[in-house]
Design a protein around this nucleic acid. Structure first.
Length: 506
RNA sequence: GGCCCCUUCGUCUAGUGGCCUAGGACACCGGCUUUUCAUGCCGGCAACACGGGUUCGAGUCCCGUAGGGGUCACCA
């Protein structure tokens, strides 16, 4: 097996956007494939029709693309119109016949059997067991239901599932991260491989597909560790090789809770800003995929030295399963922000611009209609920003109508009204000076403002802040000369007048 | 609760018996730069969960305890 090319897969369920934890799993699979010169397969695990969410496949693919995790095989893999690989189809919903064939084989070989309990009956059995404080393990019927009994049950409108006969021996998982993990035979029960509706369960579909798609390494979250003995037993019964396994540590919130989509709803109910949970949330919040990827790659893995901020390519070059930690990690949003700040300052200007345009479009913001040179300039003026959201918060007012400027009470009080309206006084005195400027450029504005300060014995801050409030409604903007230039002569003057009018009304 | 996994600064981690007076990053604290915000620069605080072993020597190996996590579906 070791002489084959490395083939890994990421197998999400289409139940919504790509979760950040899923993205980390996808990333590690991708990294291993790229490091080994192997193949990265994207497979869709959609055998539970009741949990299917419309559009989620498209959303997951879009999230993968935004991250830049390209897949070699899978839906829409390769160039437009490409076949997507020769191990397809890559959606399990299109592979039903394959699974049924394997289930039949297992039954024929005596490795599986039909079971007739209804879900309700099973629940009752479990409840009874719990009341007696004993562990419930599905008791294999003895004798097994006969073909006639199965048929009779079906005729009576009851559905039959198929269960796999666990071999009754201890099973050891050899894990590339955790080492050897052995599960005792009495911990393993006969589990369902085919549901009452004829569809396979995750276990059967996963094992069959991994084998048929010739997957050599299975990297998945640690929550799957207890499933692995079942999968190994299935592989043995089916005559499949067991792939390498590596169970990744899980990612949690800073408070130790799971990062759940429900965190967003809860925060919303409390009137708080919802936390980013799905990849799409981070995209919409103005993060760069470079930063996100770099950050999550360090959750459970490290370069081994003091280097942290490296490119995806460098990460792939240095990636190794042995370097993955065993302990769970907490998702530190402050560190992510710091990484994003650094990446935003590092990335090529064209790349930054593309990211900004994407952010503007995803959020359908008015600034999306601005020409690229202007956006480029905005980015330039906002250097040091943490996320694209900061950029918009800092310059958005420059592209709004005068009437839409919201004057923040605190800013007005502190900057304009304080000291008997000193700020208003500055604006009044400054207005004619600004009106006299002939060519409205940052340089001309600078010399005029400096001259104004010198003449009045004022510090720049005494002038810049009133101007900022007048133009933006608040106290945050790019450097003041650039701000005036950005807003433009006409609107600069009109907003100063508008501000003074409001001041005199008080 | 049964079974399984994990345990170095608040957080992510380096560390694979002596190089550790335990390193880096984020956060935090202090200072500097600065026309606002944010950057940037300098400095500081801060950890081997606990208890037994093994060893000349343990953060590094073993056992136990405690704590955290996962899992016990006709979901994946």
């Amino acid at each position: 097996m070791d002489t084959q090319v490395c083939r890994v897969r990421f197998a999400p369920s289409p139940t919504g956007y790509l979760h950040i934890g899923g993205a980390r799993t996808a990333l590690f699979n991708w990294l291993l494939a790229r490091k080994m010169g192997g193949v990265f397969v994207l497979r869709i695990e959609d055998t539970d029709r009741s949990r299917h969410v419309a559009d989620s496949l498209a959303k997951i693919l879009a999230d993968m693309r935004w991250l830049g995790l390209d897949w070699d095989e899978g839906p829409e893999a390769g160039a437009a119109g490409g076949t997507g690989g020769s191990f397809g189809p890559y959606a399990q919903s299109e592979r039903l016949a394959i699974y049924q064939e394997h289930v039949a084989r297992l039954i024929e070989a005596g490795h599986a059997y039909h079971a007739l309990e209804t879900p309700e009956e099973l629940t009752a059995m479990r409840d009874a067991a719990r009341q007696q404080k004993i562990d419930f393990r599905y008791p294999r019927p003895d004798p097994l239901p006969t073909t006639a009994e199965v048929q009779a049950a079906r005729d009576a409108g009851r559905s039959a599932v198929v269960r796999f006969k666990m071999p009754g021996e201890d099973i050891t998982v050899v894990d590339d991260i955790l080492g050897e993990v052995t599960l005792a035979a009495d911990q393993l029960e006969d589990f369902v491989i085919q549901k009452g509706d004829g569809w396979p369960t995750y276990h059967l579909a996963c094992v069959a597909d991994d084998a048929l798609m010739e997957i050599t390494h299975v990297l998945r979250g640690q929550e799957h560790l207890m499933n692995t003995p079942k999968h190994i037993a299935l592989q043995r019964a089916l005559g499949f090789d067991t792939p390498h396994y590596a169970h990744l540590p899980i990612i949690f919130n800073m408070n130790g809770s799971k990062m759940s989509k429900r965190d967003k709803e809860k925060a919303l109910k409390r009137g708080e800003v919802p936390p980013e949970i799905d990849v799409h949330d981070f995209r919409a919040a103005g993060y760069l995929p470079e930063a996100l990827l770099n950050f999550i790659s360090l959750l459970g893995w490290s370069t081994g030295d003091d280097e942290e901020q490296i490119t995806l390519q460098e990460t792939a070059d240095r990636f190794a399963l042995k370097a993955i930690g065993k302990g769970n990690a907490k998702f530190d949003r402050d560190k992510l922000i710091s990484f994003n700040t650094d990446w935003s300052a590092r990335v090529e200007p064209v790349r930054l611009l593309a990211g900004f345009v994407d952010y503007l479009r995803v959020n359908d913001l008015p600034m999306a209609s601005l020409a690229e040179p202007m956006l480029q300039r905005v980015l330039q003026l906002c250097q040091g920003f943490r996320t694209f959201a900061d950029v918009v918060a800092k310059v958005g007012f420059a592209f709004a109508d005068d009437a839409d400027i919201v004057y923040q009470e605190k800013a007005v009080r502190k900057v304009l009204e304080k000291n008997d309206g000193a700020g208003y006084g500055v604006l009044r005195a400054l207005l004619p000076r600004l009106e006299s400027i002939e060519s409205w450029t940052a340089d001309a504005i600078e010399s005029e403002l400096k001259a104004f300060c010198d003449a009045g014995g004022l510090k720049l801050g005494n002038v810049a802040q009133p101007l900022r409030v007048a133009l933006s409604g608040g106290t945050v903007s790019p450097a003041i000369y650039d701000t005036l230039d950005l807003v433009g002569r006409e609107r600069t003057l009109s907003r100063i007048k508008q501000t003074m009018m409001q001041g005199s009304e008080q």
